[in-house]
């Protein structure tokens, strides 16, 4: 890391996980349970991303692994890793039993 060091990572304080954390059934509690699991992320556009949920933040920005992009039921792309900007997210649904 001498020459060519990358620019500093941006300061992006994600808001704390919303709500009083971890009440059973709450969004926070659900998210704790699905990290590392297979999920379907549907965007408001109707496009689905199926993959393993690596992590997410308070904006619903999402990191997925082994991701398949589905449009109208067809696989249209595959990504090893994918960052999805949270404002596009309609829902995150567990694709395996929790």
């Amino acid at each position: 890391m001498d020459d060519d060091s990358p620019p500093p990572p941006p300061a992006s304080p994600p808001p704390p996980p919303s709500g009083p954390s971890g009440a059973p059934g709450s969004p926070t509690d659900f998210l704790k349970g699905v990290v590392g699991k297979k999920v379907v992320v549907r965007l408001t556009s109707g496009v689905d991303y199926r993959g393993i949920l690596s992590c997410l933040d308070g904006y619903m920005n999402i990191a997925l692994e082994q991701t398949e992009e589905h449009v109208n039921g067809r696989v249209t792309n595959r990504y090893g890793d994918a960052f999805i900007r949270g404002n596009n997210v309609l829902y995150i649904s567990a694709a395996e039993p929790l």
């Binding site: 994600p14 590392g36 992590c55 933040d57 920005n61 692994e65 890793d81």
Partner: peptide, 14 residues
Amino acid sequence: DGVSQGIQEPFDLV
């Protein structure tokens, strides 16, 4: 979670 090296939050990926 059994995920790739040290991604704690989505921005880490970026």
